[in-house]
């Protein structure tokens, strides 16, 4: 479903060129669970943002479900992100002073049609990640692990094809990290496509396939 060919990304900063990605080629099939590993600064987030249509490569080809993503305009990309992807970030990015359930519901306000059963769906998702009794808690009243689980519930509200997680356990202790990894494994069993970026091997080992990003290229 994801087909990436010879992707390059070059940052220009004060006339110094940084070649972060130097020809990345890989593909991901529907239902696959892939981990991308690499040292800090190796370009994992850059690659992840390109896959998630948040950023564009300097060069290369990128097809998503046979759509040439690089030709789409800004509005089309927004719609694509809304429909196809569920994002999980290292910093959770929950809205402060907003309840868990409202945070989970947030992506729905950007869909064409606000579903009638939205609240039930959000409750179910929070229940699935073990936060049944935390639906009305605000982000600042939750632990890091709980916040990340709210973020996962949020990523699932639009029933996306692909979950993109960038260092999802980076801000968590090993116990909470294990819980998150367990949730991903369950989601994988339910048939979702998952791509996780991490530098933690114990996290990566749960994936079916581990890719290494090194010197701007993927090895795996």
């Amino acid at each position: 479903m994801i087909n990436i060919k010879d992707i390059r990304k070059t940052y220009m900063k004060t006339s110094v060129e940084t070649n972060v990605l130097r020809g990345v080629t890989f593909s991901v099939q529907r239902g696959e669970y892939v981990a991308i590993m690499g040292a800090s600064g190796s370009g994992k987030s850059t690659l992840m943002n390109i896959i998630g249509c948040l950023d564009k490569p300097t060069n290369g080809q990128f097809e998503l479900d046979n759509i040439n993503v690089l030709q789409l305009d800004d509005d089309a990309l927004s719609a694509l992100r809304n429909k196809k992807f569920g994002f999980v970030f290292q910093q959770f990015f929950l809205l402060e002073r907003t309840s868990s359930i409202d945070n989970v519901l947030l992506p729905l306000i950007y869909t064409d049609k606000y579903p009638a059963d939205a609240t039930q769906r959000a409750r179910k998702l929070l229940d699935d990640v073990g936060l049944k009794d935390r639906t009305e808690y605000h982000a600042n009243e939750l632990s890091g692990g709980q916040q990340q689980r709210v973020a996962i519930a949020r990523s699932l509200i639009n029933d996306p094809d692909i979950i993109l997680a960038d260092e999802p356990t980076g801000n968590l202790d090993s116990e909470n990290a294990a819980e998150i990894v367990e949730i991903f494994s369950r989601l994988h069993k339910e048939g979702r496509t998952i791509i996780v970026v991490t530098h933690d091997r114990t996290v990566a080992e749960h994936a079916q396939r581990i890719l290494e990003l090194k010197d701007g290229q993927l090895k795996g």
């Binding site: 927004s78 719609a79 809304n82 970030f89 990015f93 949020r154 639009n158």
Partner: peptide, 16 residues
């Protein structure tokens, strides 16, 4: 800014 980024990630268009 982070909130704006998050919103854009989950599907907000510029005009939203």
């Amino acid at each position: 800014r982070q909130e704006i980024g998050l919103r854009r990630a989950i599907g907000a268009r510029r005009r939203d």
